[in-house]
Simulated scan of single mutants.
Amino acid sequence: MILTRYNVPDLTPDEMESLSSLRRLVEDLWDEDEDKAGSNQARMHMDDGTLLRFAQSRPTIEAAAEMYRESMTWREEVNIDEIHDRHYPISNRSRAAQVAGQTFYGTILTPPNHPPIMFDRMGALDMSGIAKEKGMDDAICECYTAYLEETFRQARAFPGGRGRALVVVDLKGLSMSHISNIGLIKRIAAIGPPRYPETTGCVAIIRGPWVLSAIWKVISPILPANTRAKIKIMGKNFLAELADGMMPADQIPTFLGGTCWVGENDPSNVASTILEKSSKVIPGSYARAQAEDAVAAAPTEHVSFSSSAPPPAPGSEDYVIEPTDIADVDMAEVPEGKIHFRGHRNSIAVAKELAQSPAPQFTAPPAPPATNDGSAK
């Protein structure tokens, strides 16, 4: 059984031989009568394009087959489809996932006739703020996993089966705080290589400060050799380098000095254009978001809410931000009160609203009245 949707039309003789050998080593996973670990995912990923990625990512076909089996098993164990669907489209995200996504800064662009372009704003991560929010590191790793899965799906569906994403890693803001909390960065960096082989074609690192070399020494050993070979560290002229054949010049985002407003095709992504000036985790916002998610999931007939939020102060009327002004907003100057992005719903607005109001309180339903014999009805 072969999936024609993702077949590669221009295979070389060496590639055809590699695919044939790899298929023989993993074909047992595709047998509909078999129920082996990873089989369900393998049946959805038996196409030429996907198998070729695995075959090209390891020095031997045997190693590629082992990687394929482990990847398909991992996909089933973590339920990757459910993780993806919790985050994409972004409007599906829960309150807690929105707050975690706010701090991740991952964006995917899909220009016409061009493989996906990923923008990782690693330098903007508020590492110390994340460390203070219990469970937020796990949520960010899930956001990143969904982000990789979405990129993989777009690259896999690219015409010709050879789609490879361009990854632009913006390190502006990188500091000693990142080194102090290097554990989270290592967790993030270790998610992709063993599960999403040959999904990226080039990794362009821009605006790297002096600590870049120290972090690179920690990260590089855990990356495969072929991944390290794709990394290109750019200097001050990175805009010209990016526009010189790497990506369409009109797709360079405004936060890098380009003209593309990242959020115009996905309104829920507009956070990435204002976080240049407001990149700190709002204390308590993640816990409050989790509380709201828990309340939303509880049966409504058994839950009541109480709130002791003070009335808004005079002059704290709703603050409306037009989409055309989004890139110029300094969140520190926004007055108290609810924030509205006209026509949009934004994770920053969610986080600030959560921080300005107390978490909803759960009230247990009243006990049923007792009968004459003392038992409850």
Rank of each mutant, 00 (worst) to 15 (best):
R93H: 07
P267E: 09
A139T: 01
V334L: 04
P253Y: 07
P13R: 09
T200K: 05
S180P: 02
E17W: 11
E150F: 01
R345W: 09
A165R: 04
F104R: 10
T12R: 13
P224W: 11
T12I: 10
P115W: 01
S175Y: 03
R207D: 09
L51A: 01
A240F: 07
R207G: 03
T107V: 15
T300C: 07
A327I: 13
L223P: 02
F158D: 04
D330E: 12
I219D: 00
T4R: 12
E77V: 12
T324Q: 14
Y88M: 03
L22E: 01
V168M: 08
V168R: 09
H87R: 11
L184C: 02
I252L: 10
I188E: 00
N181H: 14
Y88C: 02
L25N: 06
I231H: 01
T371I: 13
M1L: 13
V350S: 04
G123R: 01
Y319A: 00
W261P: 05
L166F: 05
G129F: 00
P365A: 14
R288L: 00
A131W: 03
G208E: 11
F305E: 12
Q41K: 10
I282V: 14
G106N: 09
V218S: 07
V295L: 11
R342M: 11
R195N: 13
Q356R: 07
D244T: 09
A97V: 05
D14I: 11
G315A: 06
A313Q: 11
E82S: 15
I252P: 01
G173S: 03
D33L: 07
H87M: 03
R93G: 04
G161M: 05
Q98W: 13
T60Q: 08
A155N: 07
L354K: 00
Q102P: 02
I326D: 01
P366C: 09
Q290A: 12
L212M: 09
F54D: 00
S307G: 11
T50G: 02
Q251Y: 15
A291I: 07
H114E: 09
P311D: 12
S91P: 00
T227G: 04
E82I: 11
A297L: 08
D328T: 12
V295I: 15
P310N: 07
E353I: 07
L354F: 01
A157D: 13
R342A: 13
P253C: 05
